[in-house]
Design a binder for these strands. Structure first.
Length: 111
DNA sequence: TTTTTGACGATTC
DNA sequence: AGAATCGCCAAAA
């Protein structure tokens, strides 16, 4: 992969997520223009494990604020720990104050 | 080139 | 209100 437009965009957006903030796959997909294809964002995250610099995928959750991708963090609690380490409350693999910490790329970047 | 999948989202039953 | 299913589209085998 040299210029994976789609992946690169996803990586770029996720890397732009400031600490203590989180966003949803759909929000990123919407920003990329492939709205409705939120799954593509998740699929891109698979490659994120091989992306340089590393992608703070722990700041990306689903629309429900659930840490669905926590299983990809080596440990099933790493993602939760990372979020809590940034000041985000996580309960039962679910982000609390989701909308409060929500970070919309189309607003922060697209603005 | 075709088929399967996939860290989602929304709608329908 | 809860559970199940369809739809999005791109990448990997």
């Amino acid at each position: 992969m040299k210029d994976p437009n789609f992946f690169e965009k996803v990586f770029d957006v996720v890397r732009l997520i400031p600490p203590g903030r989180i966003t949803s796959y759909g929000a990123i997909a919407n920003f990329l223009g492939t709205k409705g294809s939120s799954r593509m964002v998740g699929w891109a995250m698979h490659a994120a494990s091989s992306a340089i610099p590393p992608i703070p995928a722990h700041r990306v959750v689903n629309s429900a604020g659930l840490l669905t991708g926590k299983v990809h963090f080596g440990t099933p609690t790493l993602m939760e720990e990372l979020l809590k380490s940034e000041g985000i409350l996580v309960k039962d693999d679910k982000v609390q104050n989701f909308k409060k910490h929500f970070w919309d790329p189309s607003v922060e970047i697209g603005g």
